[in-house]
């Protein structure tokens, strides 16, 4: 009832573990798969070993999370047996990739081909890295990047876009024109929060991105804007924690729905719970397939 297809890949559920959440190892991603996710995304893989920011790097706020983890990565050449073990993951795998230059992205995407992830996500939208967002906010650079990466990849390419710009539809359109197979949106919403008593930033990095229910309406609006601009499928995410939220995201034009911060509020089995909630709503409203939800 809730199976679906995305970039010709069959999924048993439209729910996807979002990048940056739990995707550090094959074992933990498999646990997420066993808990009902239709696909899982790795933590973004970068060009060289990077520690990320000091703590506090993730913190609970009202109605969401606030983070600046800062893209920690062992580096793509430094992942031990993890890449070889990707084939053990029981659901389609989305490999998330980031770089500081087009060349970085190309090298990593090329290298990952032999490990056969189902989709490669280009993280061009992390707000928590000094040079991470320049791609995501520039239609020209995004287009160049997607073309360069497409040239070396037989695996579908899905850029992940930032809501921290005023032209997400235009950027999505550039991605589509440049050959992107899908769009993922949104990444976290940039913000600086100060501790009310100590009068210092809550996060060690100073600024960060908010996620969770607090950004759900922004995410819906951005996904609608992308839907109007492009024909390629969308993985929509931002604040989805219930079946009702997921259905709303599908109605906004997404084919798949990402869950990230919801893992905090409802536990690792949130995927199972939301799958059931979606089925119940579909029954109640007379939908037989996800495709009918528009």
């Amino acid at each position: 009832m809730i199976n679906t297809t995305f970039c010709k890949i069959e999924l048993q559920s439209p729910l996807v573990l979002a990048s940056g959440i739990l995707g550090t190892s094959v074992d933990i991603m498999n646990r997420v798969a066993e808990n009902g996710a239709g696909a899982v995304t790795t933590k973004s893989i970068g060009p060289i070993e990077r520690q990320g920011h000091n703590n506090p790097s993730v913190i609970e706020i009202e109605n969401g999370l606030y983070n600046a983890v800062g893209l920690p990565t062992p580096g793509y050449l430094n992942m031990g047996d993890e890449l070889k073990r990707w084939k053990e993951i029981k659901v389609p795998l989305i490999a998330s990739v980031y770089g500081s230059s087009i060349r970085d992205y190309v090298h990593i995407v090329e290298y990952l081909q032999k490990y056969k992830p189902s989709i490669i996500e280009l993280n061009i939208s992390c707000p928590n890295k000094d040079d991470g967002m320049m791609f995501g906010a520039s239609p020209r650079l995004t287009s160049q990047l997607v073309r360069a990466v497409k040239a070396v990849s037989s695996i579908p390419i899905m850029p992940k876009l930032t809501p921290n710009c005023d032209n997400i539809g235009r950027i999505a359109k550039e991605c589509e024109k440049s050959g992107a197979d899908a769009i993922c949106a949104i990444n976290t919403v940039q913000k600086t929060i100060i501790h009310p008593e100590l009068k210092v930033p809550l996060l060690a990095y100073g600024k960060g991105g908010i996620s969770g229910p607090i950004i759900r309406e922004i995410a819906l609006e951005k996904v609608k804007e992308i839907r109007e601009a492009v024909k390629i499928p969308i993985l929509g995410l931002g604040g989805i924690t219930t079946g009702e939220d997921a259905i709303e995201m599908l109605k906004a034009g997404a084919t798949l729905v990402g869950i990230g911060s919801g893992v905090y509020s409802r536990g690792i089995d949130i995927f199972k719970k939301v799958n059931e909630e979606i089925k119940q709503i579909m029954k109640k409203e007379g939908y037989k397939t996800l495709g009918e939800i528009k």
Binding site: L22, T24, S25, V58, I59, L65, G267, I268
Partner: peptide
């Protein structure tokens, strides 16, 4: 290695446990 402490960042994985 602990970062978020609330079960989301995956930094402290040990096998499939957080």
């Amino acid at each position: 290695m602990m970062k978020c402490a609330i079960g989301v960042c995956g930094s402290c994985v040990c096998g499939d446990q957080l």
